[in-house]
Design a protein around this nucleic acid. Structure first.
Lengths: 209, 209
DNA sequence: ATTAAGTTTAACTATTTGGTCAAAATTAGA
DNA sequence: TCTAATTTTGACCAAATAGTTAAACTTAAT
């Protein structure tokens, strides 16, 4: 086969592995299922990726780079602070809409013991929480935003953004009577909802004098 | 052995199973690991619980009843609507503080295909989302709370409550430099944080005339 | 056309793992 | 104390599954 086809096979394996690992997790996934999903012989998995662990590591790294994307630098721009938050929230929800299963996958695998691996990816991606906290404190001092706890702010924001994707299988049936279109609409509308909420958390009270 | 000891063995198995299933998930858990954790012979697992599936089902049902606890009826009381929310948030975070791994376990297993099982437990627990939505709409009409979307309200509230527990392994190292005491403090303080946020989402604007 | 390198396949192996079984140990009751 | 029921154990089994191998096939270059 040609080189372009070789890459094609490797890609087919990688894409199939992404699907199956996301669906079943690192333990539940079966090499045979990945091979079937890719439509190729199981031995090819080992030909291209030595072992299940190596294949999983590749998939994990791929998703980690999505989950900790290169968008925290939005906070390094010289936009107005509220614009920064709005841009970040929109960008992150857009990413999750394209990859809705990433949060569950990542957080579950991290919990099972891949935290240190994740940290490497995070620092490589330039995610800098300390800088974020300092930014918030600076804006508080300047009086541009309310006196909020930066750690709470991060968790609140990420929770509001990420939780709907993690809990979708549950609330899809519990709240939306299995109407998947309604859920998709709901998730799309979350961009505005979360932006508004965060901005309301941050907007200083109108002084009354 | 005596009957009290028999129950003791069964309990030992059940408690060990809870630990291991939470740690590794239904696929990652090994019967041998559960036996070791319980300090008993592996055959006893099958003596008391027939199969891994049956043992897992018992554990799943146990956690499901915790995850969908009998506290939604707080909203059926005749407390003030803000008190209802405050009570609910406090009660739920208290429960999670005692069982911090339940959300990750439940949501992950539900995602992997136990949704229908979960629904049974939910309805048995009397969780009634429709009633909650109607309550919110009623209070909106009465002008007691702002005109919010009830579905957004539920997801926002549950996200703010649950997400910190799901993401703890990540933010513990990323935001808290592995200071576990600081994280425990942070989580305890979330009761007030979330209550305040939800109430601020609901409090009508002060009219200016 | 021939060759050498890379790719694909089916058959096979080794290990892990859920589950069984019969014997041994313990307990409760007569 | 003797017996029957219950509980516990270690050895074993069968199925599932990750990984190996050697041969067959394909491709690109000469």
């Amino acid at each position: 086969m040609k080189k372009s086809d070789k890459e094609n096979t490797e890609e087919k394996i990688f894409n199939a592995a992404k699907k199956v690992f996301v669906r079943k997790g690192s333990d539940g996934a079966r090499m045979q299922e990945i091979a079937d999903e890719a439509g190729i012989n199981k031995s090819l998995l080992h030909y291209y990726y030595r072992s299940k662990d190596k294949l999983f590591a590749a998939v994990f790294e791929f998703f980690a780079s999505k989950f900790f994307p290169d968008i925290f630098n939005i906070f390094n721009s010289d936009d107005d602070i509220f614009i920064k938050f709005e841009k970040f929230i929109h960008a992150y929800i857009d990413m999750l809409s394209k990859n809705p299963f990433i949060p569950m996958f990542m957080l579950n695998e991290i919990k099972k013991g891949n935290a240190s691996f994740a940290i490497k990816v995070i620092s490589r991606a330039g995610v800098n929480i300390k800088a974020f906290e300092q930014l918030v404190e600076k804006e508080i001092k300047k009086g541009n935003i309310k006196n909020v706890n930066p750690k709470n702010l991060i968790i609140n924001m990420l929770g509001l953004i990420i939780f709907p994707f993690i809990s979708r299988p549950l609330f899809e049936v519990l709240i939306f009577d299995n109407n998947k279109n309604a859920v998709d609409e709901f998730l799309a509308q979350r961009k505005e909802e979360v932006s508004t909420l965060i901005i309301n958390m941050l907007k200083p009270e109108k002084t009354l004098n």
